[in-house]
Design a protein around this nucleic acid. Structure first.
Lengths: 115, 115
DNA sequence: TTCATATGCCACCTCCAGGTTGCATATAAG
DNA sequence: CTTATATGCAACCTGGAGGTGGCATATGAA
């Protein structure tokens, strides 16, 4: 088990690409936005405000779910969706790791130049 | 100009979806990773370690560039690419805003239940 | 000058993401 | 029981994403 941050990032990168891809569609991003209010919402509710078919929204929700961004639970005849805060945390940590890596290398470069 | 955080998020969301989409491909994510070491690298250099054609890598780099994740500068006969830290900052801020929104709504819910 | 290297541009191919419609089914409401 | 609502599933369509190879061109090296 290496502690090399680049190696760690590279190991995670496939799953991370999936999460990024899930968020890389404006419809899905708007769904995430709608769910970020914290209320669990059914597919029908999430469809109401959007110019798409219920089936389209349903597909998007499945994509978000299989990426771990969202989780669902059947309740009666409706399927209620909510954000999965864990995915947000992982995403944030990934972005921060890349930023830090980048900042570190810039600092190294600066130190070298000023030497 | 509303101060409503959801409205602000929604206004940004199109550009943000583009950035997420740019990072939502494992090849491009690995390019970002390679560039996160901080050295400017040419297309040929970035292609070396990958099982793809130079043209494919070139296309991916253009996508990253038009999303603002990367910037390039022609130098002699080579085109040198580097990470654009601004995009990373914006991404981080977006993820954090969604997280905060989510946390706030959970807190509200908790307060309501415990009332 | 001549040769090798680094890119850009273009045409072309294949496959899947994003949408739609139609039909079946389960559950709530009257 | 009958009707309306909420979803799931499957077939189908279309455009663009991701790759390739070929050829032209600019620049560094011998």
């Amino acid at each position: 088990m290496s502690r090399n941050p680049l190696a760690r990032l590279s190991r995670q990168s496939d799953a991370t690409a999936t999460v990024f891809a899930a968020l890389g569609d404006s419809t899905r991003l708007s769904l995430v936005l709608a769910l970020s209010r914290g209320n669990r919402q059914s597919i029908a509710q999430l469809t109401e405000s959007k110019p798409l078919t219920r089936q389209a929204i349903s597909k998007h929700l499945r994509i978000l779910e299989s990426a771990g961004v969202v989780s669902s639970r059947r309740e009666g005849r409706e399927n209620l969706f909510a954000l999965n805060p864990i995915a947000l945390d992982e995403l944030r940590s990934y972005v921060e790791q890349i930023s830090e890596q980048w900042d570190a290398s810039l600092a190294r470069l600066k130190a070298f130049v000023e030497k």
